[in-house]
Design a protein around this nucleic acid. Structure first.
Length: 165
DNA sequence: CGGCAGGAGTGAG
DNA sequence: CTCACTCCTGCCG
């Protein structure tokens, strides 16, 4: 009988927002996944969200989207290559309200010319918001991309005071 | 200003 | 295995 990873205490944390439901999965309280509804176009309604109870993970999500600095909950074991983990670690070190370009980030992990690979790793980030890949932008001030749709990235950056374009 | 190489990963053929 | 594509960017014509 194959021994696979034994789920400890898996939980799902959902946050209903005017832009769709955000679903976070965790294992023993450690975040392992974060799914945002895909927004290919800017929603017509302004963003709003509510949190029920004192779910720390859900509160982090809403707080972050509202531009409030919050302590990032513990993260579980994320599946990825060495390269991806290096990229994610570097992203995690970007302070609230600050941004870093794909090239700068590439340099910090010793791959100065791998900006494109860095961008790819950003897109593979299993826990957007928790690993703030939205703080990685183009060297020319452009936003770059965002797996769940640029509307989210704009919202997050605007909330943190970043002036795009 | 357009074109291209460079760099890791994934999926199609 | 090869090719195409992806959250990019500096260089070169």
């Amino acid at each position: 009988m194959p021994v696979l990873s034994m789920p400890g205490n898996a939980t799902t944390h959902e946050v209903d927002t005017s832009w769709g439901t955000i679903r976070v999965t965790a294992d023993d309280g450690k975040v392992t996944g974060c799914i945002l509804s895909r927004l290919d176009t800017m929603p017509a309604v302004p963003f709003s969200a509510e949190v029920y109870g004192h779910d720390r993970i859900a509160r982090f999500v809403v707080g972050t989207l509202a531009g409030r600095k919050r302590k990032v909950p513990a993260l579980g074991n994320l599946i990825g290559t060495d390269f991806q983990h290096k990229v994610w670690d570097a992203i995690a070190s970007i302070q609230f309200g600050e941004t870093m370009s794909y090239t700068e980030l590439a340099k910090t992990i010793g791959r100065s010319t791998a900006c494109r690979a860095v961008a790819n790793a950003c897109g593979a980030n299993p826990v957007p918001l928790f690993i703030p890949c939205h703080r990685v932008v183009g060297a020319n001030g452009a936003l770059g991309g965002f797996s769940a749709g640029l509307a989210w990235k704009r919202l997050l950056l605007a909330a943190e005071g970043y002036q795009s374009n």
